[in-house]
Simulated assay, not measured.
Amino acid sequence: MLAIVLALGASLGWGVSDFLGGLKSRTLPVLTVLLISQSTALVLLTLIAATRAAAPPDAATLGHAAIAGLGELAGIAALYRGLAVGTMSIVAPVAATAPAVPLLIGLATGQIPGPLQLTGLALAMLGLAATSYRPGTSTGPTASTLPSILYGLLAAAGFGTFFHTMHHAGQGDVGWALLTARLTSVLALAAVIIITRHRVRVRATDLPQLAAIGALVIVADFLYTTASTLGLAGVAAVLASLHTIVTIALARIMLKERLRRAQQIGIAISLIGVLAISAG
């Protein structure tokens, strides 16, 4: 039960950070938003690591953490790019299949949930797809929709890789896992910015929200990593992926965006799935 609560807490943190990141990305370049927020997270994690004085885990564990950082960064980049050049109603539900990656890996390695949890997992993933669905659009792999599908699949692969590898990295030390993942992502971002010669410009008034995004990501990553080490990684990944619903709810409250009937049904299905997972 504690793992479920922590995973749901991760979904809340990621949902709020996604909402704030989406708002700032309307006025600032995505690379700038990512660099400032990720760098803030790295500074905070470094300070925490300095006070803990915990011994670093083995190289294999740190390697998993580094891959997790790259996976998360790739997932965010692909999702943002897909939403910018593709169709949101196609990109979002494809990206929402990310929990299938650790779930399928878990099933292949013998981590088999009970029948009720399997049903809950299926309902939660179905609800995520329905929440992101917008009627009146074609989802066939035509020339116009192919970029949306590809970017969605890349985002799902990136987030799914993070879910799976961070679970293994957290088996050593959660603090070192998060620090290594964040350091890797910031170094990768810096390399991209240098190669593309992107000029980072940000107003002082934007810094508090960008810093808050980084802090929320730290909290969410910590909650997810802990949850995945206490319970089944596939279950934790699906529950943490409910951050999509959090973002939609905030958009409805703060931006007055209206939910379509399909989204309302998707939220209800996801909540039923959460209850089924909890009961199992």
Rank of each mutant, 00 (worst) to 15 (best):
V274P: 15
K24G: 06
S144I: 08
A55Y: 07
A249K: 06
A237G: 14
A129T: 07
T97C: 03
A122R: 11
P147K: 06
L79K: 11
L121S: 09
A155W: 08
T142N: 14
A204E: 09
L83S: 13
L23M: 03
A204I: 15
F163G: 03
V246W: 12
L44H: 00
L31D: 13
A191R: 05
G160D: 03
P56W: 02
I149P: 14
A236M: 13
A220E: 05
L183P: 00
T109S: 08
S25P: 11
K24M: 10
V219N: 14
T131K: 02
A190G: 15
S228T: 13
G266F: 02
T145C: 06
F159M: 03
A268L: 07
S138I: 08
G106R: 03
A49K: 05
T61C: 13
Q171E: 13
L73Q: 09
T87C: 12
L255W: 01
D173Q: 04
A95N: 02
R199G: 09
G63T: 10
T180C: 12
E257I: 12
I269W: 01
G15F: 03
A262R: 04
V219Y: 14
V217M: 13
F159S: 04
A240E: 09
M166R: 09
I36E: 06
G110R: 06
R261T: 15
T165W: 01
A155N: 07
A84L: 15
A78D: 12
L128Q: 15
L128G: 00
T142H: 08
V91S: 00
S228E: 11
L150E: 01
D221H: 05
S132H: 02
T51Q: 12
A96C: 02
L116P: 14
T226C: 07
A53W: 03
A181N: 02
G152K: 01
V43E: 08
H64L: 11
L118V: 06
T32A: 12
L62N: 08
V33F: 00
Q38Y: 11
P102A: 04
A41Y: 10
T27H: 04
P56Q: 09
V16P: 10
T139Y: 09
G266E: 06
A169G: 02
A7M: 13
G158W: 01
V33Y: 08
A227Y: 11
A59K: 14
T27V: 05
P147W: 02
G175E: 06
T109R: 00
H164V: 03
